[in-house]
């Protein structure tokens, strides 16, 4: 067993874990932050995307101990006291979600896409960048629209 300490959604947390514990298991099972989802076992689906030190990461591909000392943001930490993050709001406004299971990963990836590509990111770039996130419900049409709208809103902030 190991002890790890890190910041999750702005708060310091620590835990006793087995060495093999994945970061997503630590979030879901130890911290009960169940907004981050597990949709596959081969790091393909993207339902578990979070931000580690400001960069998007599939939390099923990282051991929890690799996050020692890191700043982790999950879907639960994205909204502020002022309300939804502009990307969350854009998903709601554009019907960018149906069953909601892939949504946390889509939103976290969306924020990262905008961080790296700017608020004028075009449709083709969004589609290419979403290669690591699978959705079975929406056909992507409204997710792409939502990320482009969210990009505009983030740029306006």
């Amino acid at each position: 067993m190991l002890t790890i300490s890190l910041n999750v959604n702005g708060k310091p947390v620590s835990g006793e874990i087995e060495e093999r514990t994945l970061l997503v298991q630590f979030l879901r099972e130890h911290l009960k932050l169940t907004g981050t989802h597990v949709g596959c076992d081969t790091s393909q689906c993207g339902a578990c995307v979070i931000h580690v030190d400001g960069v998007s990461v599939k939390s099923c591909t990282m051991l929890a101990i690799q996050a020692e000392g890191c700043e982790v943001t999950t879907i639960e930490g994205l909204a502020s006291d002022q309300g939804l993050h502009p990307m969350q709001q854009a998903f709601k406004d554009n019907h960018g979600l149906q069953c909601g299971f892939c949504t946390p990963g889509m939103v976290m990836s969306g924020v990262d896409i905008v961080n790296r590509n700017g608020s004028d990111v075009d449709e083709a770039t969004v589609r290419k960048e979403l290669e690591g996130n699978i959705c079975r419900c929406t056909g992507y049409h409204n997710i792409v629209k939502a990320i482009q709208a969210g990009a505009k809103n983030m740029g306006a902030q």
């Binding site: 907004g35 879907i75 639960e76 998903f91 709601k92 909601g100 299971f101 949504t103 946390p104």
Partner: peptide, 21 residues
């Protein structure tokens, strides 16, 4: 109408079966 169910899914407050403990 924008969906009533969206807020919980967008903020990680959904309650799927694997979230039940």
């Amino acid at each position: 109408v924008r969906r009533k169910e969206d807020i919980r899914f967008l903020t990680g407050k959904g309650n799927y079966t694997d979230d039940v403990n």
